[in-house]
Write a protein that binds this DNA or RNA. Structure first.
Length: 238
DNA sequence: CACGACCCCTGGATGC
DNA sequence: TGCATCCAGGGGTCGT
């Protein structure tokens, strides 16, 4: 089943997906989706609604429980017989991890793409790990329009996106993530990065850089906020 | 193959 | 106050 009678050896991550490797080679891959949570709690702790899976863990003498809680069920769990199978069958669908981006790598991923930057950066096959909040924050910091065709960005702009990605994600990790509604980490703590959002959730507010009002629209089926003054769409042929 | 539209789901926010 | 409706978004699937 989902890693019964296993000894946890290592943990691994690619983009938004986590892998727990057992010492016999088996792998449990987890994706939290929107509302998913992995809890590490005392076995006596009350069980939250929408707890779909529970593992009894032992670490030395200490007993605890890992619980997968996911009210909206956008997350998922998958098992594999080996790391090779995880990589071949599932993670092969993912692009390079956002934290591994450098300008050269990003330029190759964006090259020749007609889609806008927002849709392109949200696509986990192109860059793994970016979601709606962070793409908006990254494009604001890079001063690029969400609908700018990805294949038209110039070298210095690619560098700005790569820099902004590492900067935004680094800051967000330091601040424990973005609690927008009810997101909690594995110890039940809220994240503080939402206070630092400069565009996400701030449509109509004044741009922190230029003072013009931020606007929003549906881009790539996601609510998208940007500064029409700082993030201009550049008409270019490819 | 590349890309866009739609759909899944629940709880919190909003409207009347 | 209470009920109905809307909205949030990661990503799979399907149509063009």
């Amino acid at each position: 089943m989902l890693l019964q009678e296993a000894t946890v050896a290592t943990l691994e991550r690619l983009g938004k997906q986590l892998a727990i490797h057992a010492d016999d080679g088996r792998v449990l891959c987890l994706h939290l989706g929107m509302s998913g949570q992995v809890q590490l709690v005392d076995p006596g702790d009350p069980v939250k609604p929408h707890t779909h899976c529970t593992w009894s863990l032992r670490e030395g003498r200490r007993r605890l429980e890992m619980r997968f809680v996911d009210p909206r069920r956008f997350g998922g769990l998958w098992t594999f017989a080996s790391r090779d199978r995880l990589l071949g069958d599932r993670w092969s669908q993912l692009g390079p991890d956002a934290l591994d981006l450098d300008p050269g790598l990003l330029a190759r991923q964006l090259e020749g793409r007609a889609r806008g930057l927002k849709a392109t950066l949200l696509d986990q096959a192109i860059v793994a790990g970016l979601g709606n909040i962070y793409v908006d924050e990254i494009l604001f910091r890079a001063r690029l329009h969400p609908r700018q065709p990805a294949g038209t960005v110039k070298r210095d702009e690619v560098e700005r996106i790569a820099d902004a990605t590492l900067g935004i994600l680094g800051q967000a990790i330091q601040q424990g993530g973005s609690t927008v509604r009810s997101w909690l980490d594995s110890e039940g703590q809220v994240g503080e990065f939402a206070r630092s959002h400069k565009v996400y959730g701030r449509s109509g507010d004044m741009c922190v850089d230029c003072g013009q009002p931020l606007r929003d629209d549906l881009v790539a089926q996601r609510q998208t906020v940007w500064c029409p003054n700082c993030q201009r769409l550049k008409r270019r042929k490819r």
